[in-house]
């Protein structure tokens, strides 16, 4: 038993610097939890987490699993951030149907200015698919959408905020072509279909239909790895 406890103490001693370096998300209230929760929108742009203002661009990216999503979330104050959850939804700027919605648990870390921000821009912000069958005439790319963002802390307190966002493909391979954002003319994909269509298309490359969408070749660009 003594040896076991000694081993544990030694292990904790070794682990302490690592834990400190990783700024473990605090369990205590971030701010003053007798005050209302403050939220501000965040998103992923050019591969990094940024604060969002109305009209801000956000990246459309291919997750490792396939498809295309945007990452939008919140930073927060006056919250018990550990054990909270965040949700996001996209709808037209003037209302209308909600096109996509997601809710997920979120881990936060404390920023120097006192705001709790998503620990990971990918895992701790809603992943909103933007390349599926969209009801309505508009496409996601180059079009402003209203993101409705909500946060529930571990005490069950909730708050919401909204921001208009403009998803963009950026430099991702096949994004515009696959999601059919470019309607100015035919696009030539870097892939082909299989089955019946493949035999037909092998002789020519006609304009694609919405059903022909695809995704990026695996490993074109990778998300940054975090030290923690």
């Amino acid at each position: 038993m003594l040896l076991t406890r000694g081993t544990v103490v030694a292990a904790l001693g070794l682990a302490a610097p690592a834990l400190a370096a990783c700024s473990d998300p605090p369990a205590a209230c971030l701010g003053d939890c007798t005050l209302p929760i403050e939220l501000a929108p965040t998103g992923l742009r050019d591969g990094v987490l940024v604060d969002l203002v109305d009209g801000g661009e956000v990246d459309i990216r291919p997750p490792d699993q396939g498809g295309f999503v945007i990452y939008v979330g919140v930073r927060a104050k006056n919250v018990h951030a550990r054990g909270g959850s965040v949700s996001g939804a996209l709808r037209g700027v003037s209302g209308g149907p909600t096109l996509t919605i997601e809710e997920r648990p979120a881990a936060f870390v404390l920023r120097a200015d006192g705001w709790a921000i998503p620990e990971s821009a990918f895992q701790d912000q809603p992943n909103l698919p933007v390349c599926g069958p969209v009801p309505g005439p508009a496409d996601f790319d180059q079009t402003a959408w209203q993101a409705v963002l909500s946060f529930r802390d571990s005490d069950g307190r909730t708050a919401s905020t909204m921001v208009t966002v403009q998803p963009r493909c950026g430099g991702w391979a096949d994004c515009e072509c696959s999601c059919q954002f470019d309607r100015t003319g035919p696009c030539t994909p870097s892939w082909i279909d299989a089955g019946v269509d493949a035999r037909l298309r092998s002789r020519s490359t006609p304009a694609l239909t919405r059903r022909d969408r695809g995704a990026h070749p695996a490993g074109v660009r990778r998300r940054p790895r975090r030290a923690c």
Partner: peptide, 21 residues
């Protein structure tokens, strides 16, 4: 659902999403 995580420190998470037809 993309980018899911079930971790020791948050052992009972729930993920949810909507899919428009």
């Amino acid at each position: 659902q993309q980018n899911i995580r079930i971790c020791r420190s948050n052992p009972a998470p729930t993920y949810g999403g909507g899919c428009a037809m």
